[in-house]
Design a protein around this nucleic acid. Structure first.
Lengths: 152, 152
DNA sequence: GTAGGTGCAAACCCTTTGCAGAGAG
DNA sequence: CTCTCTGCAAAGGGTTTGCACCTAC
């Protein structure tokens, strides 16, 4: 997904194309992975130091509403953003070393079906963060690790 | 689970029993369901107006670390707390009407096994929030619903 | 020309922290 | 008596908002 396509999509849906929006989309597309609002601002500032915080937050809110980006809350107090991708994928986040493992979206298919069948609930399982312990951090796991800020 | 048991557990693990801690545990036990720190404070204040915010936050952090309570981030900017229960359960949160449906922990068992087998990842799936649309809110679903603050 | 966006600064809001004093064991 | 916990007030930190100005169309 190139940022020009997303820009076209934006305009098609009746939103204006501003330099700021272009820069924001460009940065999110380039930086493959998750970026916080702060990181996005920092990257834009390298080329254009005048980018404004509010504009970034407002644009991210818009892009998320249009499902062009996925906001994800990894439970550390700040939200990260990523270009909306197909097929979906999820993230295993180690609560000890903070390592992130990407997981194919298919693992959630059975659960999604179950929730739909049994609870008539249409789950947003397209971008999910699962907390736990990765392979390396498991042996020394047991004695009550320090609580991380906010886990889901 | 009665709050006196939890108090005993606290002392057994070398922590002091203070009136504040007793009140906090009592409120969390009574209020069946999820309470935010603010709600906990409000409820205590009805009987004892002098309860202190910091004490509550610090106690909640302690209780979470000892796995006596489960913190859950429903993505609205504040964490809720609930007595740790067996068997586990999860929550389906409607992103439109905010309704919460409780779901048996067993639905995650296959996923947990898969993550362990394929990724050697020990997932914390004991208390999970899944966002989506409930039965009632589904028909009118499609055209880009307003973005909720922070979803996982 | 006119919505819709941007920039700025201040407000928000939940949560955390430093420190002095209190009280559980 | 000691060490943990509490109370207070202030700071933190990501995010949001009000308002005047600007600019994409």
């Amino acid at each position: 997904m190139h940022h020009t396509e997303l820009l076209a999509d934006l305009r098609q849906r009746g939103h204006r194309l501003t330099p700021q929006r272009e820069m924001i989309l460009n940065v999110i597309c380039e930086g493959n992975g998750h970026l916080t609002a702060d990181e996005i601002i920092a990257r834009i500032r390298k080329q254009y130091p005048y980018i404004n915080k509010s504009a970034v937050y407002r644009t991210l809110e818009l892009l998320a509403r249009l499902c062009l980006v996925n906001p994800t809350d990894f439970g550390d107090g700040k939200v990260t953003y990523e270009i909306h991708r197909h097929p979906h994928h999820h993230h295993l986040v180690c609560r000890q070393c903070r390592k992130m493992i990407e997981v194919d979206g298919a693992v959630f298919a059975p659960l999604e079906k179950l929730l739909r069948d049994e609870y008539a609930f249409a789950a947003d399982l397209d971008h999910f963060a699962i907390f736990g312990l990765c392979r390396k951090c498991q042996p020394a796991s047991s004695p009550a690790p320090t609580l991380r800020k906010r886990r889901a």
